[in-house]
Computed example of a mutant assay.
Amino acid sequence: MTGAAGTVSHAAVFTLTVSGPGGGTGALVNGDFETGSLGPWTCESGGAVVSTPVHGGAHALAAAATASQTGECVQTLTLSPNTTYTLSGWVQGSYGYLGVRGDASASTWGSASGYAEQSVAFTTGSTGKVTVYLHGWYGQGTVYGDDVSVTS
Rank of each mutant, 00 (worst) to 15 (best):
G114Y: 02
Y95L: 08
Y95S: 13
A5K: 01
P40K: 04
G102D: 14
S37K: 05
A106G: 11
S88V: 03
A112S: 15
G93H: 07
T42C: 00
G56D: 11
T7R: 08
A58I: 01
F122M: 09
T2F: 09
V132R: 04
L16A: 14
A4M: 04
A5F: 09
A116Y: 09
T124C: 01
A104Y: 13
V49N: 00
L87W: 14
G125P: 03
Y133F: 15
H59T: 01
A48W: 03
S126K: 06
G3F: 08
G141Q: 12
Q140G: 04
A65T: 14
V132P: 05
S107Y: 14
G114E: 08
G96A: 14
T70C: 01
G36Y: 10
A106M: 13
T35R: 06
E117L: 13
D32Y: 01
C73V: 04
G6Q: 03
W109L: 07
F122D: 12
S37W: 02
F122H: 08
S149E: 02
T83L: 03
A106V: 11
G114F: 00
T142V: 15
P21K: 14
G39H: 12
T2D: 06
G23F: 12
S126Y: 00
L134F: 08
D32V: 00
W41M: 00
T124D: 05
L28S: 02
T42S: 10
Y97Q: 09
S80P: 00
Y85T: 09
G125S: 02
T124Y: 11
D32H: 12
T83N: 07
V29I: 10
Y133W: 11
A106Y: 07
A121D: 15
S94Q: 15
V13E: 08
G145W: 14
D32E: 09
T15Q: 08
F33Y: 08
Y95W: 13
A4C: 09
T124W: 05
V49P: 00
G96M: 09
G110D: 11
G102M: 15
S94A: 14
K129P: 03
G39P: 04
G71Q: 07
E72A: 07
G136K: 09
G46D: 09
W109A: 06
T127Y: 03
S45E: 06
G47W: 02
G47A: 04
T124V: 04
P81C: 00
G110N: 15
A63Y: 11
P53R: 14
G23V: 06
Y144A: 03
V132T: 07
S111I: 11
G36M: 08
F14E: 01
E72V: 03
V13R: 13
L77H: 06
G22Y: 02
K129Q: 15
Q118T: 05
T151R: 13
L28R: 06
G89D: 05
T84L: 05
G56P: 00
H135K: 09
S152F: 02
S37R: 06
T52G: 07
G96T: 09
T25A: 13
G36N: 07
G57V: 01
D103E: 11
M1I: 01
A62H: 03
C73D: 05
G71E: 15
G99H: 12
H55V: 02
G141V: 00
V130F: 12
A65W: 13
T86D: 11
E44Q: 13
Y144M: 06
P21Q: 15
T2R: 09
V74D: 02
T86V: 15
L77E: 08
L61P: 01
T78H: 03
G136E: 10
H135R: 12
V148W: 03
F33W: 10
A116L: 13
